[in-house]
Write a protein that binds this DNA or RNA. Structure first.
Lengths: 115, 115
DNA sequence: TCAGTATATTAGCATATGCTTATATTTGCA
DNA sequence: TGCAAATATAAGCATATGCTAATATACTGA
C-alpha cells in the first residue's frame, strides 16, 4: 500500500467543505453507512432545500456518493476520493454523530426510509 | 495518554481555516519550525497585508503562536490547541511545504530574518 | 393517469471572505 | 531624536456562501 501525497489544492478544497458544521455532521452521520435526505433533515433540523444544497456541494466535490433507491436517494462517503485518508481521520476524531440516527430510529422516524 | 474527543464546533472552525490554500500552505511551512512574516510573503508571493490578515485569523483561533524577536515576529504551530491532533495529521498528508523555505535560503533571501 | 412523497433546482438576499490601498505601530539603529 | 524596516490594522470593494421561498423533477401506488 503506497502512501499517496494528497495535493494541496484538493486538500484545501476538501477541508473547506468539511469546515462547515452542517456538512461535517452529515459526513459524521454516514461515516460508515448511508442515509437519505429526509433523515438529514430530521437530524439536522434544517430545511430540505438547505440540506440538499449542502449535499450537492459534497457530491460535486466527489466526497459523497448517491444511490437512488425507489423514492429515496441515499448518500454515503466516497472512500475512493483522493483525500479520503484525511476525511477518515477527521471523522474518527469528532464526536460520533451516528447516535443521532439511533435516536431517530427509537422515535420511529427512520421507518419511512426503510425500503 | 487519554484520547480526547474534539468538539464538532471547534473541529469545523479549524477545518474552515485550513480550507484555504494560503493558510494551509502557511501551516505546512511551519509544521515543525517557525517563520517570520517576510518569509511567508516571499514564499507565497502575496502582499504583506494579505499575509498578515491570514496570520491573524490563525492566531485568533489559537492555531498558531507568535513570538517577537527584535524587529521580526515569528509564527509557529500551537501544539496545545485542542484540534492539534487533526491539524498534525492533515499536515502530514499534504506535500511538504518546507522545501519552499529551503529554496528561499538558497536564494539568500532568508538571511534578513536571521537574528 | 393522477395525486402524493422525496428530492433538486432556482432566485433573491444578507452576511462572510479575501484582496487592495492607505495608514498606524513597533523596533533597530545612526 | 529621527528614519527605515517589519508588521498590524482599517476601510473599501468584489466575490463567495448559506439561508429562505418558490418551483421543478422523479418516483410510487391507487
Amino acid at each position: 500500500m503506497e502512501k499517496t501525497v494528497i495535493e494541496l489544492e484538493s486538500a484545501a478544497q476538501m477541508l473547506k467543505l468539511l469546515g462547515d458544521k452542517t456538512r461535517l455532521t452529515i459526513m459524521g452521520l454516514i461515516k460508515d453507512g448511508e442515509s437519505c435526505v429526509c433523515e438529514f433533515v430530521e437530524v439536522l433540523q434544517m430545511s430540505q432545500p438547505s440540506v440538499s444544497q449542502h449535499l450537492r456541494k459534497l457530491r460535486d466535490a466527489g466526497l459523497v456518493k448517491e444511490r437512488r433507491r425507489g423514492q429515496w436517494i441515499f448518500y454515503s462517503v466516497n472512500r475512493n476520493h483522493p483525500t479520503y485518508p484525511i476525511v477518515q481521520q477527521v471523522l474518527e476524531q469528532i464526536p460520533d454523530q451516528r447516535e443521532k440516527l439511533q435516536a431517530l430510529e427509537e422515535a420511529g422516524l427512520r421507518i419511512q426510509c426503510d425500503l
